[in-house]
Every structure is written in structure tokens, then in C-alpha cells.
Write a protein that binds this DNA or RNA. Structure first.
Lengths: 199, 199
DNA sequence: CGCTGGCGTGAACGTTGTTCACGAACGCAG
DNA sequence: CTGCGTTCGTGAACAACGTTCACGCCAGCG
């Protein structure tokens, strides 16, 4: 069936157009009619591919998460120590966490509209499972260094600590971008993270 | 003129109704037609009192900030030490910061819809001056203990540190409420704040 | 060739926030 | 008291939105 091909192509084209619209003008600039015009299909056709615009936004956000992961994996990964971690190994684990936080700041600064869309959206609705799985997967990048620093914690506790670290960092980054004092906040962020990690 | 009285009464009634709607069902439940019906005026009358619904929401948020301030002032204020602070005075300053953070958590937990409206709204628009002034005023509650802990900083730097502390706390609280593990996060929050304050 | 079933289509629907021409009500001069 | 002008609330109307659905085209089979 060439029909399936066309549907798949449409799906990709719609995500492309939505991503471009969000990246250019923000989430609120995403309009069903503009999308239909951009990809050259009818208005109703969108709803034969996605149940609603929320689902489309979620796909765009998934791409943003993937883009972010590519940015994250550019930071050097700490080798996994065996047994008790030496003080030097602990230092590199801390440094990895700090680099992750700084990478988060840079990503938010480079893709402000995409990044805002990640948090502006979900506020009301519950998220589908496949999206949560992706989020949990990304949290592993934080949990790995924590495994070195706090081998005494159980997985559940370590996951909670990772979320705490992330949300504190997110708060700092979020405010830093709002106030447009990013230049000032990179060293501040480094300092703060180093301190928080001291737990 | 009884006309001015009526306008003032309408203004208050509209803010009341908007506040009730937001507190009950969230920001997205605020509808111009519902407001008009609730206060018993015509749809267009709203726009003779406020330029648009954004301005009305801002007024509701101002009330939320006032409500929050009343919650904040319930925490014991640290007396201002003169000259160099003793270690005990430093401890009470830290304790004040922690209590402020916990009060923030409790306020967000008790008034989730009002609290969300504070941050869900401004995302796009620029805020009017009188609103920013109110925000800056509330930040003084954080800056006061910081004056004890870091007398070496200039006002500008201290204000920045206050905003960093707030945003980190906000991140923790925000995530804590989303995941509904508030019970778990109160001790966590205490610990995190104590550590961050160690700067 | 004709029928039929599936599917893209865009007009239409229901809800928004916001505007604006109308008309009632009030004050004042004659 | 009457006539007129001004003011201001009014709600019908507008524009824009996400979403739906009855229509009609076209492919595939008998």
C-alpha cells in the first residue's frame, strides 16, 4: 500500500512543520490551519494522523529530548569504578554532574523555544507511558555519577535524589533564562551545583 | 458619583470571581462569560474595568502574593545582629531560610491552583512595573537572612543569590507537587536547602 | 463498465477573547 | 415638564481557534 507510505510521510512532515513553528515562534504559535497549509494537506487530515495537537506537540518534545540527549552524550562519561570509589573517582563523578548541569543550561540557552515547550505543555494533562519512559531513561545520565557518590542508596532513593538535583538545576536555569543573565549565571550555576552535590 | 462606587465594586467582584474560578478549577477554567454571569454584569462590562483578562489574572496573582506574604510573616523573623554575626546568629539565619523554603512548600501544597497560576501566566508577556515591585519586595524576606550570612556581598550580588536560592527551591517544590510525593519531599527539601545555604 | 467501500476533504460547529454600534438613562437648559 | 446631548453599560457580532463529520472522489473488484 502506498497509502501507508503517504501517511508516514505526512506524519513526519507534520512533526517537521510543528517543530519549525515551535522553534521559531513558540508553542502558542502552533496552529492547526498553518500546519495544514505548510505540509499541503487538508485541515481534517491532521486528525487522521494524530488524535489532537497535544499528541503532535508530544512528538515534537520527544525530538527535543533526543536533541538534548545528543548534547548530553557529548560530555565525557565517567568510567564506572569497581568496589569503593577513590577520592579521585568521586571528584570526576562530581565534575560529570556539574558538566551535565552546564550542558543543560547551554541547551536551554541555544533552543529556548523548544526547551520552554517541554515544560509549558504537560502542565495540565497526564503524560503517556512512552514519554515517561524516555524521561526516566534520560535521568540515568544523572543517576550514573550518583551511583559512584552514593553507593549506599537504594535505586528508589537514588532516583529521587537525581530528580531533586535536576529540579534544582532546572529552577536555576529557568530563572537564568527569564532574566537574561545567562552570562552571569554559568559560574553561579557551577558553584551551586558543586555545593548541592556535596550531599 | 455612585458610578465610581459601582465601578470599584465591580472591579472587586470580578477579582473575587476570577480568584474563585482559578482556585477551584485552575487558570484555564477562567472564562469571560462565566465571570460576567457570576458577578451579574454584561460581557462587555468586564472590558470597561480591565483592558483584558490578562490584567485581571495579574490582579488575582497579586492577591496570591499577598496571601503568600501573610503565610511567610508567620515564620519567626530573625533579629538583626549588629557587627559580626556570632555562629549562633548564623545558625538562626540558616534556620530562617529553611523555614521560608518549607513555608513555600506548604503554601504551594495548600493552594496548588493559585500557586500554579503565578507561573503558568507570565510565560509569554512582560510584566507591569507594579507587579515586579511586589516581587522584589517579597525577595527581601530571603535577602535579610543572607545579609547575616554574607555581609561581604554587595546588594546586587546578594539579590542574585537570593533569586538563585528561590529558583532552586522553586524547582524542588514544583517537582515535588507534580509527582505528588510531598510527604517524602519535606525532609528532603529541608536537607537540600540546608546544604545549598552552606555556600 | 458499474458498483461499493474506504478515506481525504473542507465546510461547519462550538468555544474562546475582544470589539462596537446601539439604546437607555441621566443631567441640564429652555 | 420637555427636549436634547452626553455617557456608559449592553449583548450581538467578529475573528480565530481546535475539532468533527457528512459529503464526494477514486481505487479495486465482480
Amino acid at each position: 500500500m502506498r497509502n501507508d507510505e503517504r501517511r508516514e510521510w505526512l506524519r513526519a512532515a507534520l512533526i517537521d512543520a510543528a517543530e519549525a513553528a515551535i522553534a521559531a515562534e513558540g508553542l502558542s504559535a502552533l496552529k492547526a490551519r498553518d500546519l495544514a497549509r505548510d505540509v499541503g494537506c487538508a485541515l481534517g487530515t491532521i486528525y487522521t494522523v494524530f488524535p489532537d495537537l497535544d499528541a503532535l506537540i508530544l512528538r515534537v518534545n520527544l525530538r527535543t529530548l533526543a536533541l538534548f540527549e545528543r548534547a548530553i552524550t557529548a560530555v565525557p562519561i565517567a568510567p564506572e569504578p569497581e568496589g569503593k570509589a577513590t577520592p579521585a573517582e568521586r571528584d570526576t563523578a562530581v565534575e560529570t554532574l556539574v558538566r551535565l548541569a552546564v550542558a543543560y543550561l547551554h541547551f536551554a540557552a541555544e533552543h529556548p523555544a523548544r526547551w520552554r515547550a517541554l515544560f509549558q505543555h504537560r502542565v495540565t494533562h497526564a503524560l503517556p507511558d512512552w514519554y515517561l519512559v524516555e524521561q526516566v531513561r534520560l535521568f540515568r545520565y544523572i543517576e550514573a555519577p550518583l551511583r559512584v557518590l552514593r553507593p549506599d542508596l537504594r535505586d528508589r532513593e537514588r532516583a529521587l535524589l537525581a530528580r531533586s538535583l535536576f529540579s534544582a538545576t532546572h529552577g536555576l536555569v529557568s530563572l537564568g533564562l527569564d532574566e537574561k543573565l545567562m552570562v552571569l549565571s554559568e559560574p553561579v550555576l557551577r558553584g551551586q551545583i558543586e555545593i548541592v552535590v556535596g550531599a
